[in-house]
Design a protein around this nucleic acid. Sequence first.
DNA 1: ACCCAGGGTCGTC
DNA 2: GACGACCCTGGG
Length: 288
Amino acid sequence: MKEQEYVLENATSFELKDIFDCGQCFRWNEEPDGSYTGVFKGNVLNVKKVGEDIQFKGICDGDIKEIVEDYFDLSRDYEKIKETLSRIDENMKNSVNYGSGIRILNQDLWETIISFIISANNNIPRIKGIIERLSKKYGTKITWNSQEYYAFPSAKQLENVTVEEYRQLGLGFRDIRLFETTQMILKKEVNLVKLYQEKDTNMVRDELLKLSGVGPKVADCILLFSDLKRFDVFPIDVWVRRVMNDLYLKEADETKVNKKKIENLAKEKFGDLAGIAQQYLFYWRREA
DNA sequence: ACCCAGGGTCGTC
DNA sequence: GACGACCCTGGG
């Protein structure tokens, strides 16, 4: 663990605000100078955009270049993805244009599972607060630039945490779900390592659905936003339901729109790119 | 003061 | 399959 730097020159499809505010992650915060600092996979990193260059610096558990290339999904051709999606229709063209700097991060699977269990029927400021308190109380401290950061706690670090302690942290009714899921993972009732080896996305989803607090929406978010990295999913939340109804289905009462109908439409329109399409649409509808 | 919604899931009917 | 309950917080 030592301080390192890396510069990605002439970056395309890489806007800090789009990446960190599009709803996929909860631990990146904007600094006064417009850069962002975050904690992930035991690293603390500051990311700054200067012209078309992206400057990374921080303390990393490994080689910074490799860590950045993996986490920021640098090997994927987002320009091509955007081109494909833009050709679908005018709506997609607009949403892709709005969130043109989005990249889907390769986040730690365990952290993503817990984070999205916490996200259920919750709002983003509160989700961030809960995760921060959880990390501060049970995670490993990392000091950088004389500031203290806390890594997301491992399953092992949460092994003996009680439901009551979770409740005190402000988890609300999700306390029991966090407790049960942690125990299931520690006992390998759901084996996270094996999830990476399974090719069929539906098989992986079925495994994730065994976890307490993981329903269809959360499972799809885990599949898309973690380093499982499946793009052939389409997480449907209130915002996506809204935007899909406004653009395509046009039913009077959006809350009564059939989920299966949305799923089928997404599959038909976006195919293997449904996940990333969802993210452009979500970000566009929520922010614009 | 009061009500409502927020990246849903779960148990019950 | 539909329905209500669920903790907590910020905004109207």
